[in-house]
Write a protein that binds this DNA or RNA. Structure first.
Lengths: 192, 192, 192, 192
DNA sequence: AATGAATGAGGCTTCATTCAT
DNA sequence: GATGAATGAAGCCTCATTCAT
């Protein structure tokens, strides 16, 4: 029975992941989810309290891992100069994440409207952006660079999303992230 | 009176633009639109067959203009070498578009889920991406560069979106697009 | 159209009053209400925001009138001795109310579980009870009389409810309220 | 084991009594009952066919005892004159009942909406009321007194309920019932 | 053309009860 | 006897669209 329960739970999660991935949280209907999962309407609620809680079950692990990685990488505000390898490290860690949770990552960052995570992508971009700015020397004209850094941060995040969308295997992802970083850094560093 | 009054039609379009811009197509409710437009529920449907058709009225001009510009710029597959100024030109044209249609542009590219344009952003990115690739010499390892070019295309599009979102005036937009191009090109050209 | 609208609204209110009266708020189903009213599901919500708001529309006038009457009658805490005619006055006012709103009165006091008025009957009883107590001389053993006064208050309220339930005409109600008061007072005054 | 374990049955009954007492029949959820009883959902239905039957198990003994007491006291229609002590006797018997079954009594009379006992309180009041009337001499104006007697009956029942709700110990209950009777009788006898 | 009342499919969720293990 | 997963009817409510006036 325990096994059965897990099997159903996984079936629901898998079905919901597909539906959330296809349509985003708001448009995802519980009907489609239960049909895909082969589960009755009522039974869904034996496993998850609500559509929203089901969503969080799918997406929270990725969110928490991401937050942890960000704090590990950027948390200590003591890096005096911009450290390119830092971002590379970050990217690699996220890259690992993708091998298991690419759809969840995509859902979290681009299909979570209507949930408490709906600003997650913006937050991520802002954090990255702020971090980029911190590394400029004081005499730099931060005013002017603000939007550029935001664009750079967006690019990074969107590139990661794109890599997630096209994910083939770990090797593939890694080499693409490296390319991305190379591209990104040569773009950004010229402004230092 | 057979002829529908333009004034009302415009009021609806303006109201709908605001609402689509604020909430996206799916979340936009006809109620909010008619309230903003000061029009009755029934009358909305004298001017537009459906919420979707109303959406297309708002967004199609931008879409068509964009397609036209793309074809003009990239359509003739005869450019033998990659031409950076080409992208610049494209960007400038889009930049002009922004001064009149920034909201519509944003809606088209990022608020059209649930409509036939929901893949528009991806299409745009793909077209740009293909074009970037075409300009590499045959001996280049296109395989490897494919995703990179996709990322480059995404960056361009997203940067334009970000500029649109923060649009202040023509001058401001232009200078930012230039910064963007500079950033973008130094990143991309290193792979040629 | 205005007339039509009012007619439907009244039909809904009448149907809902019946259903609330029969089953109480919680058990009242919107389905039964719309069937009784001959109205479509959606249309109900063109007239009332929710089942709860519909309930309040039916019951609030009675509640407000009752509160007003109570304050008028008991509000000024200056009556030094127990004044029987006071209650008589109150009863008469409520009696007037019954001629128009007997069902609403019954619903408010005994069918409002699940709404913000669910403690209304208790509040009424407590207010009455406190008022009874205030009129005893200080040397009286209030401790012992507390529950008795509560019972007396309950009796009064329940008697009114019973009169409401059996309401035939104004004359009938009035004479019964008088009987009630007579009965009530000879019971209560022996403790002074 | 064919014989159901009394211990479990009792646990269910005790839990259900609490829940019915707190929320009334309709609002009582089987989930809360089984949680309180520490019993599985399915097993509940090995002991009771339905939520309703469970309710009857709890409430029927009190109901039957009450009916028995009523018949004993009022059943033989031969008492020619109104006998105040009769009611006192009845009250005392009910008072005894309270020491063991106050919750069940309260549930039966005021939490049974949605069950076949939902009119029990009214029935009780009517029986009492009829009995009061029988004791008036024929020349009395029964017409006029009918509702008054009903009110008197209601008062009695509601007072008993209130005493049940505030029950502290047998002594307390007894003295309150006496007070109640005193109050009640001085009210009612004036009409003879 | 204009109005806004009317519709009904579909949304999410609850809950008593059944049933396979 | 015991378990708790499974069921499905019913609950309240939203919303784009239609239609009578």
């Amino acid at each position: 029975m325990q096994i059965l329960k897990d099997e159903i739970k996984n079936r629901i999660i898998e079905a919901a992941t597909e539906v959330f991935f296809d349509t985003g949280f708001i448009q995802a209907s519980t009907r489609r989810i239960i049909e895909k999962a082969g589960v009755s309407k009522g039974n869904l609620y034996n496993y998850f309290q609500s559509k929203e809680e089901l969503f969080y079950n799918i997406v929270a692990p990725v969110f928490n891992y991401m937050r942890y990685v960000l704090e590990e990488t950027f948390g200590h505000g003591d890096s005096e100069t911009f450290n390119p390898s830092e971002i590379n490290l970050l990217a690699n860690k996220l890259c690992e994440l993708l091998s298991d949770y690419r759809r969840q990552f995509i859902i979290l960052l681009s299909k979570s409207q209507g949930t408490k995570y709906e600003d997650c992508k913006d937050m991520l971009i802002n954090k990255l952006s702020e971090h980029f700015l911190k590394n400029f020397k004081p005499e730099s004209d931060k005013e002017k660079l603000q939007i550029l850094m935001k664009v750079a941060a967006m690019n990074t995040v969107n590139a990661l999303l794109e890599i997630a969308r096209n994910y083939k295997d770990d090797q593939w992802a890694k080499s693409n992230v490296e390319l991305l970083m190379k591209y990104h850094l040569s773009g950004i560093t010229q402004f230092y």
